[in-house]
Design a protein around this nucleic acid. Structure first.
Lengths: 403, 403
DNA sequence: AGAGTTTTGTTCTCGGTAGGAACATAACAA
DNA sequence: TTGTTATGTTCCTACCGAGAACAAAACTCT
């Protein structure tokens, strides 16, 4: 009688084509099938696929046949269990398209190849000198490993990315660096996004947040940044710069932040906050190592280090509670230092989170969990957005047409 | 070469059916057509519809014909302008389905009937004694006005709504009031949501936020609450209680809030904050009138009242800046006291918003605008969610089938 | 006033899509 | 060996939208 919340299957829907003809219908169902294969935790059979998509076995056979011919899907004999005619498992085609994922970090980069289903193979990587010249190196690495199977490149980088190509990486001193100019012509189709956002996307698609309709992820490094994840998608905001949760005044700090605002949450959470407490200069130098040492000393029983970690965890929890009031996530996952904070101070985080939660919601607080994708978050997320570009009615339709 | 942000058409997409057959395709295109009629600011012709949906004139004719026969759409001769064979305007069918929208407030309620396209007719309304008995009155009013055209009821109420039926209205002392039991059997299909969220939805669909992919709306009354609007949809969170932005510590207050948390933004923004400054007791009594008087005195030049309004506007702006860092809205609309604050103190709000914005985004701050739907927000939003339930492949498909 | 132009509605055919029924196939079970 | 079960395959049918050709109804120009 009362329509319930019909939403939040927590699954990622393929985008709809703009027009809707019979041919689009075919392609759409094929994309649904490919998306199911990509998202499934384990391979499934053709018959299961038919049931899953609510289509007949005959239709499933036709869909799979075309996809096999287009080298998008492959059928291998399934080990026979129980009665019935033996069937086949749907797996990525051995000559199918590949996404390259690049994780571009402060001082290093990694290139990996990712197939349908998310299996990743690391191809290359290296250190860099913090100048845009590193992209020449990356360009060469991609060129070295590229085959005609390469379909899309997904790139994870830090800082805001305007118009999908202009990089602003403050701690490298990069302002308004044009990615298109860096990689030059002949570069394959590329999608770019923020590393923190992609780490969250990775958790939503393949990690601790899988299946959650509303969730958040925070990466804690020098400071804290995050993403709101809705229906398996990371929100980017109106100018593609959403996610600076660390620059909200959630903890009552009075310091001035590097970002130009007073009282940011980031001043109390993350490596910078730990270091500052010990008289160190916060910034993007050796702070990370110092923070690790403080954590270790806290584990070893050093009282001052323990107090610093306590304060960090408390500030983290306080902010999470505040954000939960506003955005009501089912779960919150953490990466980076957040994993250590959960391990060492889960009670502190949860207690301060509860304190920040409105009283009436304390009986159902958001689950706070460590991310399971870990350090591979940005790379995994970059692969996901690359595959999102492939698993698109337009792309798949062209591939099926063109042979 | 670089895939741009392909999203954020800022439009509301019809939900996809779970299966995808040829018949579903027909229905889906019909829903797209109805949705276009519903969302369009002005009626359009059949030929324009064909162009809009990217379908042929023949197909458009067939779609419209069936919808006319199902009494969902009606064709009236369009006044002829320019050359060409005269065509027809697509308008709601005079015997088509209607949504009833109920705006249930602290001390009054309104019942309206809303047709396709959003045209509303107020049917009934009244004061109430703050006990759940008022729903008996509402039930009778709906019964009095209901015809077989009534399809769905949309209800706006305050406070969190769990499972789509359990009401928690703290300032009426209602805890865990079951809506299903209140209205009893024989009540039409109903969708319910929060008034603040629905006011935001109204702005997104028919007001100041129309066409924005990422936006926020805040209603300022005693305190402040809001909604995040993405792609024309209000976000509800994992437990349907998202939107308590007022209960984040964004302004450094040290007071304890009624919600059980310290330092809430709401302590500094809204009628309660104005009243408290004048020694009044914040709460849900006569605070609203007092706040109006303070605003008036500020307009008349009273220094103390002006200072109070300044503080309110400053706190508002500060919080908006913080939220903009995190969620990156293109625009923010305000209703309630927010409209007065914009009128009287736009500069204060914008200055403090900029102060809270990270430096690099100050050149492109979110637009802060007064809502244009005004007081009718919750009612309009309730009608929208009711029509969302009608403009659904399942509902329309049944209607077309059943005759 | 009449002929040409422009836009839209209508009709018909055609390729394509999914569903359904019937049958074939390949395993297991008794 | 025979029956059971689950799946693959092969028809056929209903339906959908595209496209082309034509009809209709306005306007415009001479």
């Amino acid at each position: 009688m009362f329509a319930a919340d019909a939403n939040s299957r927590g699954w990622h829907n393929p985008p709809m084509p703009q027009t809707m003809t019979s041919a689009d219908l075919r392609t759409l169902n094929q994309v649904r099938l490919l998306r199911a294969v990509h998202d499934a935790p384990a391979p499934f059979t053709r018959a299961e696929a038919a049931r899953l998509l609510g289509i007949g076995r005959n239709t499933a056979g036709a869909l799979v046949g075309e996809l096999e011919r287009a080298r998008l899907l492959h059928e291998v004999p399934a080990e026979t269990g129980g009665r019935g005619r033996p069937t086949t498992l749907l797996v990525p085609h051995p000559e199918g398209p590949l996404a390259f994922a690049v994780d571009f970090r402060e001082d290093s980069w990694t290139l990996a190849s990712v197939g349908l289903g998310g299996a990743a193979t690391e191809l290359d990587g290296g250190e860099h000198d913090r100048t845009p010249r590193v992209f020449e190196e990356i360009r060469q690495a991609v060129g070295r490993h590229a085959t005609d199977r390469l379909a899309v490149v997904g790139l994870a980088t830090s800082g805001p990315i305007r118009d999908g190509r202009r990089l602003h990486i403050s701690h490298l001193g990069w302002d308004e660096v044009d990615l298109g100019a860096l990689v030059g012509d002949g570069w394959p189709p590329t999608v770019v996004d923020n590393d923190a956002r992609l780490a969250g996307l990775a958790e939503a698609r393949r990690g601790a947040l899988r299946g959650k309709g509303t969730a958040m992820h925070f990466h804690i490094d020098f400071d804290i940044g995050g993403t709101l994840l809705l229906g398996g998608d990371a929100q980017r905001g109106g100018h593609n710069i959403a996610g600076e949760f660390g620059h909200m005044p959630l903890t009552g700090s009075d310091l001035e932040c590097m970002c130009g605002v007073r009282g940011c949450w980031s001043l109390d959470v993350g490596a910078n906050a730990l270091v500052r407490r010990f008289g160190g200069r916060p910034g993007y130098g050796e702070g990370r190592g110092l923070a690790r040492e403080i954590l270790r000393r806290a584990e070893d029983g050093d009282a001052e280090a323990a107090a610093a970690v306590d304060a960090n965890a408390a500030a983290l929890g306080r902010g999470l509670g505040a954000l939960a009031n506003a955005l009501d996530p089912e779960a919150i996952s953490l990466s980076g230092l957040g994993v250590d904070l959960i391990r060492l101070r889960r009670e502190v985080i949860e207690a301060h989170c509860a304190e920040g939660l409105m009283a009436f919601r304390r009986d159902e607080p958001p689950q706070i969990v460590a991310g399971t994708v870990g350090d591979a978050g940005p790379l995994t997320g970059a692969a996901e957005i690359a595959w999102d570009a492939i698993l698109d009615p337009g792309w798949v339709g062209d591939r099926l047409q063109g042979g």
